[in-house]
Design a protein around this nucleic acid. Sequence first.
DNA 1: TTCTTGTTAGCAAGAGTTGCAGATTGCGCC
DNA 2: GGCGCAATCTGCAACTCTTGCTAACAAGAA
Lengths: 144, 144
Amino acid sequence: MRSPDELTVAFRQRGLKITPQRVAIFRAMHGNHRHPTADVVYADVAGEMPSISLRTVYQTLNDLAEMGEIQSLDLGTGAARFDPNLDEHHHLVCDACDTIVDVEVDASALAPVDLGGFQVDRAQVIFSGRCARCASVPAGSTTA
Amino acid sequence: MRSPDELTVAFRQRGLKITPQRVAIFRAMHGNHRHPTADVVYADVAGEMPSISLRTVYQTLNDLAEMGEIQSLDLGTGAARFDPNLDEHHHLVCDACDTIVDVEVDASALAPVDLGGFQVDRAQVIFSGRCARCASVPAGSTTA
DNA sequence: TTCTTGTTAGCAAGAGTTGCAGATTGCGCC
DNA sequence: GGCGCAATCTGCAACTCTTGCTAACAAGAA
């Protein structure tokens, strides 16, 4: 995604207003590689702006996703994840602690066989397993 | 998944009882390549057994998934999908009508680069786009 | 500063799924 | 065939995530 300053310009160009809530969310997402859920973004932003509502966070994240500034991901962890990384990449999901890590995949491998007329727009690869931290721990000893 | 008859044996071997509800669900899933949601299975089974509850369908599908007889898939379509196809395969998801089609992918090349200690157990590829039927239609003219 | 229009907060509701408890039933045993 | 225990089923409430609705509010052009 672009920087908060650039987004401010982009929003105004679209006739959208710049509010302190939106700016706070821009900042919370910029360079955030933790694939936060809306709830996590809400918690982050609420630290400096306790009056913000979860509803507004959802609204703004969805707006950013529609504008193509962030990606909205469903990685099967229950809640949607938001990712400011727009480069071609895929994800590793830890079954134990739900940590998500970006990963590169040789895209040439992603050619499906036998499409039968299906027109493919996107390919998403989700690797599941254990992150480095959880892999080195007995069993159910981690939660984050 | 195995046949209803074989599942009957397998359930009994595990000390699980065979009920008409379970058998009906076995039959509904056997050879079903439509990737039904629990709700769809419920509707199928309720045709011949109106008294069955959605709760029982969820219960049995989860039991089958735990036993490894079917796969429970989260393909980002809202509800979980259940798949009796246990062969190595991936999925095409139609953005327009949510139809899901099995597809083979050359898995040999699906190795992620730079794992950083992440221990990968599974890799799931989700292709999104338009199924043959929806691809040949203007725009929002399909729903199933 | 005023006014118009987009935004926000807060709550209710909707979808999907699971927990719970009492009624029911499979099935091993006599 | 009948008995009894334990597993199962049903129906409902509850829970999570997300969105719809609306009155109060505020950005920003004039």
